[in-house]
Design a protein around this nucleic acid. Sequence first.
DNA 1: CGGCATCCTTAGGGATACTG
DNA 2: CAGTATCCCTAAGGATGCCG
Lengths: 159, 159
Amino acid sequence: MEHTLHLTGSLEPRGAWKADRCTIARSLEVIPTRSAFLILREAFYGTTRFADFAARVGISEPVAAARLRELVDQGLLAREDYREPGQRTRQRYRLTEKGAELFPVLVALMQWGDRWLDEHGGPVELRHHGCDERVEVELRCAAGHAVDASELDLVRRRS
Amino acid sequence: MEHTLHLTGSLEPRGAWKADRCTIARSLEVIPTRSAFLILREAFYGTTRFADFAARVGISEPVAAARLRELVDQGLLAREDYREPGQRTRQRYRLTEKGAELFPVLVALMQWGDRWLDEHGGPVELRHHGCDERVEVELRCAAGHAVDASELDLVRRRS
DNA sequence: CGGCATCCTTAGGGATACTG
DNA sequence: CAGTATCCCTAAGGATGCCG
């Protein structure tokens, strides 16, 4: 069984596209580290406070400070002041739309880990609110077909 | 707009599940580095040879050797000898099923980078072979509904 | 509470040269 | 062709302590 893509036409020879435009590589420059991924995980789980990020991700506060600053600089998190009635002003970090759209990446990592790295299929699962059915990431084409990885063509974008 | 999940029932307080069982964290222990991700990208693109991995990922050969060994040790790639008729024996690296199932992770990273990190939506795209429609990763529940990130419950797995 | 300063250790990675 | 050996540099991250 071959696990590679169909490479069509002008994508080969490979000089046809520059490695520095690869958007997988670019994404990994924005989220280069394990701690960055796990801080995003916490943000999806609803964590907003500095000390909670450090504690729940399991990293030291200096590292948490560095990662949070980088994620804010990249526009994935927004740092904002807020004040609950009768309380002092606090800070919190919230996902921006740009950050929130990374959700499928985290779900895909979780799904793979659930299958290959845990005896019991992982500690938690995602369900469709209301419907209550299990949720998974999948590949699907614009015509609505579920797509297997063996049915893919990789082509240069039609600009 | 809130970009967090619905956390239901016993997932809170958070001590209810152990951070070391998080399968996102576990996956990132298996593929911890940018170079590991990009070697997998190359494997999907059909690269099989040592020197090609190093050159196409843009890493030095010592680093390529270390990453390839780790990926083989983790069972994502298989190293095998092969011989074409009339040629000497060569080595190649091929994706295992375990490695191949990481494909949605890479597609999700590419899709996010296409949207947020490239002026023109990315250099390449995936199309459904035959059908020729564009392919994307999406969240979908077992009942067949496309699921928005705002419609998710996170629950402990029913074991 | 939400950090920063300092010091330390380890891991990632480049360059160059060499080997079976 | 498919790597290893060596050397060096930088980044990631922990521990401790301090600050507004």
